[in-house]
Write a protein that binds this DNA or RNA. Structure first.
Lengths: 182, 182
DNA sequence: TTGTTTGTACAGAATTTACTGTATGTACTG
DNA sequence: CAGTACATACAGTAAATTCTGTACAAACAA
């Protein structure tokens, strides 16, 4: 069964590649490797089979698979006649990509905008007050400009994420190389 | 000097915000905080002044500032009459954003594509060979499809990064909210 | 009901990552 | 030339993250 081994090695190489790539996005290698495993397994897998395949604890499989679920990269499959939870990879990488960064980037932004607005207000008060020493006003002015710039930038980032969430980005950068449709 | 304190607090709040945001992108909080400090300092800063301001070791300042330099978020400033290296933030956040993800994402992709191509070739050999058992051929076929899909996806990602690097993305998502120019 | 199977919370262990202090090299100064 | 000021390499330490094993809870079976 030399062919068996050859296939296995080819697959492993690509799993490593996927793992490395996901790691670049801040996903732990073990979690990435688990995704790779699920991606190539035609059948959905149970926690026990993942554990056996990766040689890790079942606890780790449980938490890793949950992470992948939260990232919408893996879904639970129901199958008649088994009590085990079964999982399979979600195979739309484009959707995974846009979802991942939408979730991740959007996370902080609204809070960030709120905190900048608060600081902006405080600084504006300082600038309006006649009690504020002149050199403080100068510094306040500098800060205010930078706050405004930050707000502008976060607004842009929000609009960029909008194009991810609505899939409009694929109008601009089409999935297929040669056909500009969809 | 109550005004002094008030301004300081407003600024610190925004620095925390920036730190948090950068941390989301995989930049360490200390490094993010250093960027925030440099962003609000009108004058460029020396390693010693950073150290004093953040209460960390000079070694840390040295390595952190180097990281920021590699990410093109900070640049070295030359100033007559001082032997210290002086640094200032690069204030174009849009450019910083596109640069950062171009550098980061592009990093792996070409190697990834190469390794997938290699595996693709090996699997194709298996499929063509008459010695390969039928059940291995079936698995190989499955794998091959997934390799091809991955290649397609990485190609898309490359084209997305192209729009970042060339700043074409700003045609699609303009920097200014209301004026579609630039 | 009791026994069994399965998934997960939690605490501690192991590993990785980030930080510090010393030691050294290099470039200026006089 | 020595002497000083500065930045950084490197090794060791501290802190954070990830992983494991046990213990327990929920769901099911008989």
């Amino acid at each position: 069964m030399d062919e068996d081994l050859k296939l296995e090695r080819a697959r492993m190489r690509v799993i490593d590649t996927i793992t490395q790539n996901m790691n670049l996005y801040g996903i732990t290698p073990s979690v990435g490797r688990l995704y790779g495993l699920l991606y190539f397994n035609e059948e959905p897998m149970s926690l026990d089979s993942m554990k056996d395949e990766l040689g890790m604890s079942k606890t780790s499989m449980s938490t890793s698979v949950r992470q992948l679920q939260e990232l919408k990269m893996v879904e639970k499959i129901w199958k008649k006649g088994t009590r085990k939870d079964l999982y399979h990879s979600v195979d739309d990488w484009y959707q995974t990509f846009t979802d991942y960064f939408s979730i991740k980037w959007r996370k902080g932004i609204s809070q960030n905008i709120a905190s900048i607005n608060k600081s902006l207000e405080e600084v504006s008060e300082l600038l309006e007050s006649p009690n504020t020493p002149i050199e403080i006003k100068e510094a306040a002015n500098n800060d205010k400009d930078r706050f405004l710039y930050a707000l502008e930038y976060y607004d842009w980032l929000n609009r960029l994420i909008d194009t991810f969430e609505t899939n409009e980005i694929f109008k601009f950068v089409p999935k297929q190389k040669d056909t500009p449709k969809n």
